[in-house]
Computed example of a mutant assay.
Amino acid sequence: MAKRGAVNPGEMRAAVTALRDWLEDPERRPARPDLAKAVRLSLRTLEQIAPGGSVEVRVPPFAAVQCVEGPRHTRGTPPNVVETDPRTWLQLATGHVTWGEAVDSGRLTASGPRSDVSQWLPLVRLERVG
Rank of each mutant, 00 (worst) to 15 (best):
V97R: 07
A63V: 09
R29A: 15
R40A: 09
V59H: 01
P60T: 01
E27T: 15
E101N: 08
A63S: 12
A93K: 01
T84W: 02
P26L: 10
G52C: 06
Q66H: 13
A6H: 14
N8M: 09
R40S: 12
I49M: 09
V103Q: 07
Q48S: 10
G5H: 13
P61Q: 08
P9S: 14
T45W: 12
R20F: 02
R128T: 13
R87P: 04
P60E: 10
V97N: 03
V65L: 08
A102C: 08
T109M: 11
V57C: 03
S111Q: 13
L126E: 05
G52F: 00
L41P: 00
G53F: 01
V55F: 01
G5Q: 14
N80A: 06
R58A: 10
H73N: 09
G5P: 09
N8R: 12
F62E: 10
I49L: 10
H73C: 11
A36M: 11
W99M: 00
D85N: 11
L108R: 00
D25N: 15
L92I: 04
N80P: 03
E83N: 08
S115M: 03
A50N: 08
P61R: 00
V81D: 03
E69L: 12
V103R: 10
R107W: 09
R114L: 15
G106Y: 01
T77N: 11
W89I: 06
A36E: 15
V117Y: 03
D85V: 08
D34Q: 15
D21L: 13
G70R: 05
A38D: 06
P71M: 14
N8K: 13
P30V: 08
A93D: 00
L121Q: 05
H73Y: 14
L121H: 06
R29C: 10
E24L: 11
Q48G: 09
E56Q: 12
H73L: 09
N80K: 05
R75C: 10
Q91T: 01
A93H: 01
V97H: 02
R28E: 13
T109G: 10
Q66R: 15
R107G: 12
A18P: 10
L19D: 01
G112V: 05
D116C: 05
W22A: 10
H96S: 11
G95W: 04
S105F: 09
L43I: 07
G100N: 14
Q48L: 09
N80T: 07
F62S: 04
G95P: 06
G70N: 08
A2M: 13
E27Y: 12
L92D: 00
E47Q: 14
E56K: 07
I49N: 02
V81F: 00
A93F: 03
V59Q: 01
R58K: 11
W22F: 08
G76H: 05
N80I: 04
D25F: 08
D116P: 05
T98C: 05
G100M: 10
N80Q: 07
L43P: 00
V124I: 13
V65H: 06
R40M: 11
R40K: 15
L19Y: 04
D104P: 01
A6L: 14
R28G: 07
P26G: 09
I49H: 02
P79R: 06
V39Y: 04
G70V: 04
